[in-house]
Design a protein around this nucleic acid. Structure first.
Lengths: 152, 152
DNA sequence: GTAACTGCAAAATATTTGCATCCTT
DNA sequence: AAGGATGCAAATATTTTGCAGTTAC
């Protein structure tokens, strides 16, 4: 879990920022690194409390907002009023990612995942309602917390 | 939209409170009235800013929390960090309501509805994941904001 | 060099806690 | 009468804003 910045991820980060017409700065690189290195979603507090790094709180707020505005990350609302952010696979910076994917919150480890490959089935809404976007958050046990089955 | 408390709703409110082993107090009655009188979901701020009524902020926090704990109302998370609460149809106080219904947020009037009658289709989760609860929030135009069709 | 980003201070909001008083049962 | 609920004050926590110094391009 060492936060070594490899040459490769460094390039990746720069790419994403440049593609979104953002200047490549230290904070932005470091925060984007976190997202790239992380399987699940990240809350504002997770970044601030990050051991070993020191992040200015205000800069974190502003950076996250900038990333959301650019479509690099997206917001995952949760019931406990702790907003989490996630970078999704591949085309995050194209703004497609938000359209139809499922979020999964593990009740055991509290990790939030983006399940990009799950198809959200059509909803039959009542007469008069029409929807442009559907957000699905599933709650349960994730792949890592699943009790392993001991085969004989 | 007058907040007249009819004898009937008064009884209804008392019923709900008693059924949940809560003492019947002024604040609880007034706040529960609001939920009963309202089609959509309510945010903390909506209650405080309620014209004509004066609610102590702290009491509102505590009352909402109590109602959530008892299962009288439930939380609807939204991306803008403004948690909303809704009382659902019929069996709110039995704790069933949260299980599988769809929330609908109108992007026009910003009202949040509980669509209790919509069936949430099965999700095919990736290998290793298992879910116990699914939250679906659809966003779009509601029945009231729909542009009316002028028939010839 | 210029425009944009950062970090600090401080303001504005939102939420929680403690406690004395009041109300429900 | 007793326990719980309320309302006020105040403590905490969260988010936003202003601005001067710094950095990216």
């Amino acid at each position: 879990m060492n936060q070594l910045i490899t040459k490769q991820t460094n390039n990746q980060v720069q790419d994403i920022l440049k593609r979104n017409q953002l200047s490549v700065t230290g904070s932005r690189k470091k925060i984007l690194q976190l997202f790239l290195a992380q399987d699940g979603a990240i809350a504002h507090g997770d970044i601030e409390k990050r051991a070993g790094e020191k992040f200015d709180r205000v800069t974190v707020y502003r950076t996250l907002q900038t990333f959301v505005d650019k479509g690099i990350i997206h917001v995952i609302p949760t019931a406990d009023n702790s907003i989490r952010y996630a970078l999704c696979k591949d085309d995050c910076s194209e703004g497609h990612h938000q359209d139809h994917h499922v979020h999964f919150v593990c009740t055991q480890c509290n990790t939030t995942y983006c399940l990009d490959d799950i198809v959200i089935p059509e909803l039959k809404l009542p007469k008069g309602y029409s929807s442009s976007h559907i957000e699905v958050v599933a709650e349960g046990i994730c792949k890592n917390c699943k009790t392993p089955v001991h085969l004989p």
